[in-house]
């Protein structure tokens, strides 16, 4: 079962979609590495990571049901 990842702001410009699916990842670190390999431009971006709508700071184990979101900062006003 692939995991669904929501992307916000300029990250979705890089992937071409605001939702992507990622297979075979056990935690947030492996998920982010997987996404960076598929979309190398994401490497240059800073973003916050949320699992099940909670911002996390440390590597977090994922289940098939986990909802992951990547949120970059916006500067516009």
């Amino acid at each position: 079962m692939p995991l669904t990842v929501s992307l916000f702001g300029q990250l979705s410009d890089i992937t071409g979609s605001n939702i992507i699916e990622v297979e075979n990842v056990i935690d947030t670190n492996s998920l982010i590495n997987n996404i960076k390999e598929r979309f190398p431009l994401i490497k240059d971006n800073k973003f916050a990571v949320a699992v099940d709508k909670k911002i996390i700071r440390e590597n977090t184990l994922l289940t098939e049901q986990s909802l992951v979101a990547l949120l970059p900062p916006f500067s516009g006003g």
């Binding site: 702001g9 300029q10 240059d44 971006n45 800073k46 916050a48 911002i55 970059p72 900062p73 916006f74 500067s75 516009g76 006003g77």
Partner: peptide, 25 residues
């Protein structure tokens, strides 16, 4: 606490370079 480190030079486009829908702000 949300974004500990400022983004790098030009990592994030501003409204002038990326555009913005007027009603959004």
């Amino acid at each position: 606490d949300l974004f500990p480190v400022p983004p790098g030079e030009m990592e994030v486009p501003n409204c002038e370079d990326a555009g913005v829908l007027g009603v959004l702000p």
